[in-house]
Design a protein around this nucleic acid. Sequence first.
RNA 1: GCCCUCGUAGUUCAAUGGAUAGAAUAGAACCCUUCUAAGGUUUAGAUGUUGGUUCGAUUCCAACCGAGGGCACCA
Length: 565
Amino acid sequence: MIKDEIKNLIEKAIKDFTKELVSFSVEMPSDKNNGDYSTNVALILSKKLGKNPAEVANEIKEKIGENKLFSKIEVAGPGFVNFFVADKVFIDILKDVDKNYGKTKSFDHSKKIIIDYTDPNPFKEFHIGHLMSNAIGESLSRIFEFQGAKIKRVCYQGDVGLHVASVIAEKLWTQKDDEIGVWVDGLSGTAIAYVGGVKRSKEDSEFTEFVKKVNKKIYDRTDPEVNKLYDSGKELSLKHFDEIYKKLGTKFDWLIFESETGPVGKRIVEKGLKNEIFERGDKGSIIFKGEEYGLHTRVFINSEGLPTYEAKDLGLAEIKYKKYKYDKSVIITGNEVNDYFKVMLCAMDKVLPDLAKKTKHISHGMLRLPEGKMSSRTGKVITGESLIEQVQELVKEKIKDRNLSEQESKEIIESVAIGAIRYSILKQSAGSDIIYDFDKSISFDGDSGPYLQYAYTRAQSVLQKAKDEGVKTSFKKLPSEITQLEKMISYFPEAILRAEQNYEPHFIALYLTELAGIFNNYYSKNKIVDVADELSPYRIALTEAFSVVMKNGLWMLGIKTLKKM
RNA sequence: GCCCUCGUAGUUCAAUGGAUAGAAUAGAACCCUUCUAAGGUUUAGAUGUUGGUUCGAUUCCAACCGAGGGCACCA
């Protein structure tokens, strides 16, 4: 990367000024009049030396001297050193663009990473919040994968616990004789029972007691009717989830269930109790006193002797490590569990210290509707599938007059719809909430997934034309001056690195949107394929490089590219 | 009450302590006899309030105002 080279040059240059380590930045100024790269090193250094910043900047400029990397170096503003990179440098990068372009060589990423995301619960709906988790998790997986890490994808699902118990209890409570033990409405039956069960627990304490009993039966599997409802309901859910994953293009290596993590977690907590990491709470529960670490107390084993979510998460860490000796474990969840996670990780640090150090919790905001919070407990949800379907309908409407084969249409509808949804999630930083506005998320103008896909498709169309007309790529004849497009292509590795280091796919989305805009501008100003123009081979090469970058970038966002749209 | 997040154009989002705070949408005006107009060009508009640290603050600190989330047997 050019940035690293500049950083090295500066570090060498300032050795004569100070022996101390100076932390300075090299950045890309938004205003290109301030160079391609700029450093604030003189501003930082001048304070230590007690000198005028501009003077220091000039001395650094002299020290760096002539270098074929730059066309010029300038001192500007309060003491910035601005680097104008020579055109040749960008063209050399362009020449080297291949399918691995963007991979950071220095990065130690032959790492083993296990990443846990999506995590829908059987018996409940797959709602748009899961879509959000999936978009972020899948993208992070691919970013790491692209850098060379060995990734295992895990989907952790709550197949036991009170939420499941209330579904089964509600069904048992309300079912008619002719439907004993069967889910008459399929998957929606379980989701309806969930809503009903939650409502009933609030109103009827007798029912709440019944839910607890059912919960215990689910764990110990002593009741055949409960078992039957449970097994068939879980199977329905999993089959349904599988169809969604297929649409989304996610393939999990392992599905892990709370029914597996529960017993393991319970054992870990009981051992921790002996070692006085955990203690007894009210009514025989086992708790972790977070207050000693500035956190709050949480129950790990409840008074029924059953493991809670907390204990299960400890078990999950151990099970994952048994399956895969990971260097890093990434867990994606909603941010409403942030405080909970701090306590759980604190407890993990005491009972499973090695694993706790390898665990990274990434949380995303909520997907909220303009009119209020979405909750599966009240039934006010938009399911993942219904959203996908609605967006697909809009794409269908848009392409209905085009001359496309059935296969082409199907591919376009699916890819564009998923791309639009994924992009609307990944275009902003993961931590904050997304106000989900239907009309805007399905608009395909401007800052959107289809905008990126369209730019790629245009490039493909150009490349096809070049092929048809027999114009080949070449760097023999170069333009007198390069454009923003060449420069933007050279920034791709930096965008990936930033996304990866911050666990933030939106840096890639941001980059690609800017890149697509620059390409669209280039496209409108230049005729790329022109047999009569001696610059045409270069323009085609540039278009090809753009294509590769856009394709790889979109892949990292989990968005498919199309030849036609 | 305590803890955590967050307040940026009308709206939805950007901005690794840096230079004139960027986009997109909605508005106004243009551009299809050049490779897909799902496109391009031009134009107007914003850092909640009050202090502090700094050569420099949207960014760090404090207080206040406002929004969301969490705080013992749900996940």
